[in-house]
Computed example of a mutant assay.
Amino acid sequence: MSLLQKRKSLVWLLIFLITILWGYAWVLMKASLDYMGPFTFSSFRFGAGAVTLMLIVWIWKVGLPPKTYWRHLMIIGVLQTSIVFLLVMFALRFVEAGKSSVLLYSMPMWSSLLAVRFLGEKLTRRKIIGLLIGMIGLLTILGWDIWIGQSPEVIIGEILIILAAISWAISNIYYRLKVQNLPQIQVSAFQMLFGAIGIVAVTLVMEWGEPVVFNVHSIYYILFTGVLASALCFTVWFMIMSVVDMVTATISTLLVPIFGLMFSTWLLDEVLTTTILIGSAFIIIGIVIVQKKNPRQQ
C-alpha cells in the first residue's frame, strides 16, 4: 500500500493490467460454453473465486463481518454475483462477447439514475446529457439489431445483459446504503461466497446431469476467470481504490469493454461492425460525462 501511495505510475500500470485481464476474461467466458453449460461454468468460476478470496481474508486476518451485516451481504451477493452472471452467461450463448461487455458496462448510467432516487444525489444538466448520450448508444446497438432482422434470441440476450447491468447498479446503491462501513475486501469476499451459493443452487436445478468436459482449456478458463480475474484482480482493485478517487476508478473501468471488443475480434473472430463501434462510443462518452465532476465539486 505504501508503495502504491508513493508511485502513482505503478497504480496506473496495475489499472491497465487489471482492465486487460477483465477484458480478456470475456473471451474465456464465451469460449467456456464449448465445454459446459453457462450456469455450471459460473458455479466453478465463482466457487474458485470465493475460496481464493476467503483465503485472502484469512491471511490478512480481516475476520468475519458482524452478524447484523450478513443479510445485507447475501442480498448484494445475489444482486451482484448471482443475478448478474447467471443472466450474462446465459446471454453469451446468443450474444457476442465484445458486445456483451459493452452492454454490461453501461452500469454506471443506471447507478447514476438510481442514486438520484435512493441516495438523494442531484440530476445535474451534465448528468442528464451524459445519460441521454449513453441511452442513444444502447439504442444504437439494440435498435439496429432489430432493424437488420437479428434473431429474437440475440435481442433477448442483449436485453438480459442490460437487466444484469441494472442489477449490478442496484447492488452498488444497496452497498452504499447498508455496508459501506465494512472493509471492501470483506464485502467482496462474502458477497461472492453468497453469490456463488446462489449460482450453484440454480445450476443444480437447471443443468443437473448435463455434460461437463474437463481438459486443459476448460480448467484454464475456470481458474483464470475465477482465481485471477475475479478474486486476485478484485483484491488489487480494492487496494487501488484506496489511493485514487472513485470517479477516476469508475471511468478507468471503461477500458474493460474496449479490451473486450479487441480480444473478441482477435481471438473469436467476432465482427466489429460500425454500429457496435458507434454505440460503444456513445455509451463510453455518456458514462465519462456522467461521472466527471465539475471543478467546484472537485
Results as ranks from 00 to 15, higher is better:
residue 292 K to S: 15
residue 264 S to C: 02
residue 21 L to V: 14
residue 212 V to T: 07
residue 268 L to Y: 01
residue 10 L to E: 04
residue 137 G to S: 05
residue 196 A to H: 08
residue 213 V to R: 10
residue 204 L to G: 03
residue 39 F to C: 08
residue 269 D to N: 10
residue 151 S to F: 08
residue 243 V to T: 06
residue 166 I to A: 11
residue 297 Q to M: 09
residue 70 W to G: 12
residue 26 W to R: 08
residue 253 T to P: 13
residue 30 K to Q: 01
residue 163 L to I: 00
residue 225 T to Y: 00
residue 2 S to N: 14
residue 224 F to I: 08
residue 212 V to Q: 08
residue 216 V to C: 12
residue 91 A to Y: 04
residue 58 W to L: 15
residue 30 K to S: 12
residue 280 S to T: 08
residue 272 L to I: 10
residue 151 S to H: 09
residue 172 N to W: 08
residue 282 F to L: 04
residue 209 G to I: 01
residue 221 Y to L: 09
residue 220 Y to M: 14
residue 270 E to R: 01
residue 101 S to K: 01
residue 102 V to E: 02
residue 290 V to M: 12
residue 21 L to K: 01
residue 87 L to H: 07
residue 45 R to P: 10
residue 132 L to M: 10
residue 231 A to L: 03
residue 248 T to I: 15
residue 271 V to K: 12
residue 266 W to D: 04
residue 253 T to N: 13
residue 254 L to A: 01
residue 86 L to K: 00
residue 178 K to M: 06
residue 1 M to T: 11
residue 262 M to S: 13
residue 139 L to Y: 07
residue 120 G to N: 02
residue 126 R to W: 00
residue 214 F to P: 11
residue 217 H to R: 11
residue 285 I to L: 13
residue 35 Y to N: 11
residue 118 F to C: 03
residue 292 K to G: 09
residue 194 F to V: 05
residue 278 I to N: 06
residue 123 L to K: 01
residue 226 G to K: 02
residue 117 R to V: 15
residue 52 T to L: 02
residue 288 V to S: 00
residue 55 L to G: 15
residue 191 Q to I: 00
residue 247 V to E: 12
residue 20 I to T: 07
residue 293 K to Y: 05
residue 172 N to Q: 10
residue 201 A to F: 13
residue 120 G to Q: 03
residue 110 W to L: 08
residue 86 L to V: 12
residue 98 G to I: 02
residue 174 Y to T: 05
residue 180 Q to W: 12
residue 36 M to W: 03
residue 294 N to F: 07
residue 32 S to K: 03
residue 45 R to A: 08
residue 260 G to V: 04
residue 133 I to N: 06
residue 47 G to E: 06
residue 28 L to E: 13
residue 125 R to E: 15
residue 252 S to D: 07
residue 236 V to R: 04
residue 195 G to A: 10
residue 27 V to S: 09
residue 85 F to D: 10
residue 56 I to L: 14
residue 239 M to V: 05
residue 224 F to Y: 14
residue 161 I to P: 13
residue 88 V to H: 01
residue 129 I to E: 03
residue 41 F to W: 05
residue 99 K to W: 04
residue 236 V to Y: 02
residue 50 A to D: 10
residue 197 I to Y: 08
residue 143 G to K: 00
residue 80 Q to K: 08
residue 212 V to P: 09
residue 12 W to N: 09
residue 155 I to W: 00
residue 90 F to E: 10
residue 237 W to D: 00
residue 94 F to V: 11
residue 7 R to S: 12
residue 13 L to D: 09
residue 290 V to D: 06
residue 260 G to Q: 00
residue 5 Q to N: 12
residue 250 T to A: 05
residue 153 E to Y: 12
residue 85 F to N: 10
residue 78 V to C: 10
residue 74 M to H: 04
residue 71 R to D: 06
residue 24 Y to M: 02
residue 212 V to R: 04
residue 30 K to I: 00
residue 255 L to V: 00
residue 231 A to C: 13
residue 14 L to K: 04
residue 55 L to I: 15
residue 270 E to V: 11
residue 126 R to A: 06
residue 81 T to I: 14
residue 204 L to A: 14
residue 261 L to K: 05
residue 164 A to M: 04
residue 153 E to W: 10
residue 71 R to P: 08
residue 240 I to K: 01
residue 265 T to I: 15
residue 144 W to Q: 09
residue 142 L to Y: 09
residue 246 M to F: 09
residue 181 N to Q: 13
residue 42 S to H: 01
residue 21 L to Y: 02
residue 54 M to Y: 14
residue 59 I to L: 15
residue 197 I to N: 13
residue 188 S to D: 14
residue 246 M to W: 05
residue 286 G to D: 04
